[in-house]
């Protein structure tokens, strides 16, 4: 029985592992965190239909029935390839595999690097991920003093499309996430005034544009301009400044809470892993794949495949598709060997 090692137990890794196990391979998933499910398990609800994330994660986790097997809290710190076989080391244990799938996902952009936005300094500047945590915990956002905010601004493209912080690319999912979260805040706090500061609204997926229109109908205000800087006001309110580019004029306003739509960054530690496998990161720091059109899961090293957000920002749909695509490619590879 041929063995496949899947590095990363998020949605991509779990889906690929399940598909490969069904094809008859012995599959082991290595997850560095203590639980499977990746970032999605920390989210409350998903765009576009606001399904609870836990449903998706639980379904994927239910495939872990021995094959695929999963090792939690297990970071692969060394990989070697010899005669078409891979040796993966973690905590002095060695695992063997005939093929490796990199599914290490992404990290959220560290928002404190946009110093001028005051994340980590001002009381009521939070990230989109923290807002999801608040939805999970309370069902609504809370200010640092425990009150509900009455005026909020969602800041798009934090750590995306920004060469200053070496993130020149679009993270794809933040636009629709902001619109989803804005609607959720409006539903939780109907009297809240909500503003989205965007540069473009990249509503590329099914149902996304509808969500945008729904937000407009619910009275959410869209201001085309990037946040230039934030300052803290008395009472821990936040003054934000942008250009209202549709009228070519600076715009300022004070809000109770600022939500930074943090983008997707390459996962820490992925560099060492892919270097050990003989690969290089692409110019944005993600795992380089060889053919973006016809084989978006193949790397330049035989037997090493990559899928999901480790290859660049992805939504769940694309990650699941990539996982299945990787399963097929791995199957083809192992049968032609």
């Amino acid at each position: 029985m041929k063995k496949v090692a899947v590095i990363g137990g998020g949605v991509t890794g779990l889906e690929a592992a399940s598909q490969l196990a069904q094809m008859g391979y012995t599959v082991t998933v290595f997850e560095k965190n203590s639980a499977a499910g990746g970032h999605v398990s920390k989210w409350d609800r998903l765009f576009p239909n606001r399904r609870h994330s836990i449903e998706v994660v639980n379904e994927l986790k239910s495939y872990l029935n021995g094959n695929p097997a999963i090792y939690l809290s297990t970071a692969i710190n060394k990989v070697t390839k010899k005669d078409n076989r891979f040796q993966l080391e973690a905590y002095n244990q060695v695992f063997e595999a005939d093929a490796v799938l990199i599914a290490t996902g992404f990290e959220l952009f560290p928002a404190e690097r946009k110093e001028e936005y005051g994340y980590g300094i001002y009381d009521n500047v939070i990230t989109s991920a923290e807002l999801e945590g608040m939805f999970k915990e309370n069902g609504y956002p809370v200010k640092r003093n425990g009150d509900k905010p009455k005026r909020l601004a969602f800041i798009h493209c934090v750590g995306s499309r920004d060469e200053k912080v070496k993130r020149p690319y679009c993270s794809k999912v933040c636009c629709v996430t902001a619109v989803k979260q804005a609607i959720e805040v409006k539903e939780a706090i109907p009297e809240a005034e909500i503003f989205c500061l965007y540069m473009d609204l990249r509503m590329f997926g099914p149902g996304y544009e509808d969500l945008y229109k729904e937000a407009q109908q619910k009275g959410i205000n869209f201001i085309r301009g990037r946040l230039s800087e934030a300052s803290e006001l008395e009472g821990s309110r936040v003054l934000i400044k942008t250009e209202d580019t549709l009228s070519s004029k600076p715009l300022k306003m004070s809000v109770d809470m600022v939500v930074l739509m943090v983008g997707m960054s390459p996962a820490q530690g992925t560099d060492e892993l892919i270097a050990a496998l003989g690969l290089q990161p692409n110019k944005d720091g993600f795992v380089e794949i060889t053919d973006y059109h016809l084989n978006p899961v193949k790397t330049k090293v035989d037997g090493v495949f990559a899928a999901g957000a480790c290859t660049g920002p992805n939504n769940i749909t694309d990650s699941i598709n990539a996982a299945r695509s990787a399963a097929v490619e791995i199957h083809k590879y192992l049968n032609n060997k």
């Binding site: 503003f195 209202d244 009228s247 004029k249 600076p250 715009l251 300022k252 004070s254």
Partner: peptide, 18 residues
Amino acid sequence: VSVHNMDTADLSLAHWIN
């Protein structure tokens, strides 16, 4: 000062039209 100040902007007409 030539800035849109959304703290003082009169949005009554916008609300009424909507």
